[in-house]
Design a protein around this nucleic acid. Sequence first.
DNA 1: CTGAAAGCGCTTACAG
DNA 2: CTGAAAGCGCTTACAG
Lengths: 341, 341
Amino acid sequence: MAVTIKDVGKVANVSPSTVSRVLANHPKISEATKRKVREAMEKLGYHPNLQARSLVVKSTNTIGIVMPNSAELALENPFFPEVLRGISLKARESHYGIYLTTGASTDEIYQEVVQMVQGKRVDGIILLYSKTNDYIMDYLLKEQFPFTVIGRPFINAERITYVDNDNIYITKQITDYLLGLGHTRIAFVGANMEMVYTIDRLQGLQQSLEQAEVSFDERFVVYDTQLKNGMKEQFSKLLQDPHPPTAIVAADDFVAIELISYAEDLKIAVPEDISIVGFNNIIIGKYIKPSLTTVDINIYQLGVEAAKYLLQLLKEDDFVPRRITVPAKIVERKSCCRKTM
Amino acid sequence: MAVTIKDVGKVANVSPSTVSRVLANHPKISEATKRKVREAMEKLGYHPNLQARSLVVKSTNTIGIVMPNSAELALENPFFPEVLRGISLKARESHYGIYLTTGASTDEIYQEVVQMVQGKRVDGIILLYSKTNDYIMDYLLKEQFPFTVIGRPFINAERITYVDNDNIYITKQITDYLLGLGHTRIAFVGANMEMVYTIDRLQGLQQSLEQAEVSFDERFVVYDTQLKNGMKEQFSKLLQDPHPPTAIVAADDFVAIELISYAEDLKIAVPEDISIVGFNNIIIGKYIKPSLTTVDINIYQLGVEAAKYLLQLLKEDDFVPRRITVPAKIVERKSCCRKTM
DNA sequence: CTGAAAGCGCTTACAG
DNA sequence: CTGAAAGCGCTTACAG
């Protein structure tokens, strides 16, 4: 049997209540008894049972993290470890633990979230993504359970605290950059229209083109659903257009790197024949040839802020929902150049 | 206030004990009352409080995962998400949750582990790494707390259930492969001697050389500590040897890709001038030029097995420690070729 | 087949 | 400054 507050009390000759109070470092306990009790704890190797504590104080000191479903290989990309590092930092500072969903499908995740919430496993939740149609977010909202999200909520954003890049703005910037290099036929490859950030980025792209009075070509948007038939095939199809794109904004660095690889196979030079930019600034982007021009969205900071505000929200009664914008910046390397023809 | 077992009992006109029993689907409760109680639950939107349950049954249905410290960028590489996918699968099947350490230093992690264990937050633990000198593992052993580890424990291996590749064998194989291509001066770059898998791989390399009666050159082992002064510098230093290596076994694909990049900068052709192999088979390895020859250590499966046996160990009283070996295989691509000179 | 009682290991008004 | 008592929401012998 584990040693309990009772055992400690017996050894220290005080009541369990007193032991509990020195545990909480209650100010009204005399230093003398505190010392006495602490010695007894030490001697017995006492450690509080957090479950029991949680049950009465109605708080677990742990935050739940909802990941996109692990069946999709979304996890292959380094977003997750990086965002987790950020969340960990803040959680640790406040002595919070981290509980993870493991679901492989949205339904499974939903079940787990209900369990976390109703089963009182966590005090608050961080949603690591924002989709257009998310009944998990709806549920949390309905239950008025504390949560923050990474990404802009598609609906009810005004009632939710979330952390996001300014995806519209940054994509407008990167498009302006390509425009500045003389490109006018710019494709967007790997669009997942369920994700709100894709919607925003696409809008940023369009805004940029509009402002430059360059027409936007719908055929130049390649959706991730199409990619499932083979990215290489879709890519070469894209290039067979009578007026093919001369620049590509890829959904992320992985897509960008894959495209660069296919370009080589197809004897198309990057960046001379086609310029390519990615998103996320994964480490490897620096080492491939040509090195990858990309947008650093500061994933770590996204995690830090999401955790920071969740913790704040948990503490303050009058917390008002807010939007936190994490700056993104263009990392210019060698995968883009001036349009040659 | 949340709805409790008492509320349900009141509505269904039964005692709380009975409600608890239908929750556990106790066989001796009549179908009639089961139905009645379930209706009441439904009506009230009842969900069991898992904390309360855990307190009495002394089991949390959650497993703790101890990561290498998040301060090191170890997490940048996709090992973590991938192993987590594997663990998740098994955890989910058995309705176990996942609790994560967040520590940035070994000491912090140790504190968290003690909390997890003593605070009764988890039923068992998976250690995601094995180091030569690990007081966390010692602690778990001393406490006789259930755990499995990914990687070979440096000591007490016979008392511990662990999942590992046969690192000696697979590295012997990959070295044999390089030997077969005519290479005799083979370097090992990025050795972290704290990690047991490095020790094993180095041994595999030596075994292969020994067997081929090729002498092993200590200077050809480049430690990660040296790498901190700049991998590029260490690499060019290595190549300035009067008899430089013609092949490199890199600690992982990241190191391999970085080396390939530096080789290009230094006007050294890969694989013509130097052959390079990595470990892990990260997705991107397929897309870089030259595509990367590597060892697929089957990270996902490592996670699956670690979770599977932890769960088994939690269930069975007479579980005996065992070693599970996950097969690794060489993925031959284009970063190695026959020695030219 | 079901209920009353005790208990899991804590915390926290209440009283002194 | 400290203790006795009640209670957090469950489970589980024990008894009938």
